[in-house]
Design a protein around this nucleic acid. Structure first.
Lengths: 169, 169
DNA sequence: GTTATATTGGAATTATATGCTAAAAAATAA
DNA sequence: TTATTTTTTAGCATATAATTCCAATATAAC
């Protein structure tokens, strides 16, 4: 039935697989029976496909999303970090230190003259932020600069990655 | 048994609830029996607590994580957008246009002189990025500037939000 | 068109989720 | 501290779902 199947880095996906990816990215805890129903397959092949997607590494995990504000983390900030030297040791050390901070939601190594890393952090309030910044992050060896932006509103977040190869317009 | 229970914006969490949040943020598809086992409760009260956390809005959903690169999206960029005027209409229109673009993973309204929004986008390659930027995003009414950073490496991503009130050091 | 290969659907089995109730624990009041 | 009330739990019964197996079907190769 599925005619259109596209090979993607070793894995071949047909429309069933793509539907599974689309649905699981929005409803990660949907049960297999309903998933099967939605994509138009019976439960057994549907489950087999989900397992195959997991085993292939295309699905890397599942996460519950929680309301940070209701957990007392009212402030989200983007932190742009500059390093003095771009050596593997500097980077490895910084990354290890940052990984030990539970407030850090995300750490990206990025291009740009402005910064080497962008961190996304959640804290209770500005006092906690100041503490994190001054007592933890700027004390990491090699950090020469830090610029903060604060998140005023989360317009879009946790959106699904398109399961089809991006159309070039 | 749980002595330490903290009221957080209307919800009171004890150590069981916190454990549930911690585990589900890492293993969103764990089954209730194993979850119950891990937190040291029998399945029925465990499930009741999960449902309560969902109903209270503290757990806002579940997501499967997928490997963007293996889906053909090799390039991730951070896009900083400046607007000409800061009117509700401008913002609402921009946000609606951006929400219609599947490449946009995240859109945050932020502070800072540099930009009003930060977008996180995934695309197949630089050609697609150029196309997205020039033909879609910069054409949205009110957009006066766009600065791009590219993600070289994802050091940390999708980390759990701490379930305990942030310790002020 | 025929053969080989892969995938499906459905039944049987196993495992899990869910609702209920008595018992235990915790909180409150005396 | 003790009695009383309230809340929460554990365990059982039942409903629902996951998983395995295999014959039937579809797809691909020849």
């Amino acid at each position: 039935m599925p005619k259109e199947s596209t090979p993607v880095v070793g894995v071949t996906l047909d429309r069933y697989d793509r539907q599974i990816l689309d649905i699981l990215q929005r409803h990660g805890r949907i049960n297999n029976q309903e998933l099967a129903e939605r994509i138009g397959l019976s439960p057994s092949p549907c489950l087999r496909r989900v397992r195959a997607l997991e085993d292939s590494g295309l699905i890397t995990g599942y996460r519950a999303l929680v309301d940070a504000k209701r957990l007392g983390h009212s402030l989200t900030a983007l932190l742009h970090i500059s390093m003095d030297r771009h050596t593997p040791e500097r980077f490895a050390n910084f990354e290890a230190k940052v990984a030990a901070l539970p407030q850090v939601q995300e750490c990206l190594l990025i291009t740009g003259q402005e910064a080497d890393y962008q961190l996304k952090v959640v804290v209770h309030d500005m006092d906690d932020y100041q503490n994190l910044l001054l007592n933890q992050i700027t004390r990491i060896e090699g950090v020469t600069g830090a610029h903060s932006s604060f998140v005023l509103r989360r317009v879009l977040e946790h959106r699904p990655i398109p399961s089809y190869p991006a159309a070039s317009q």
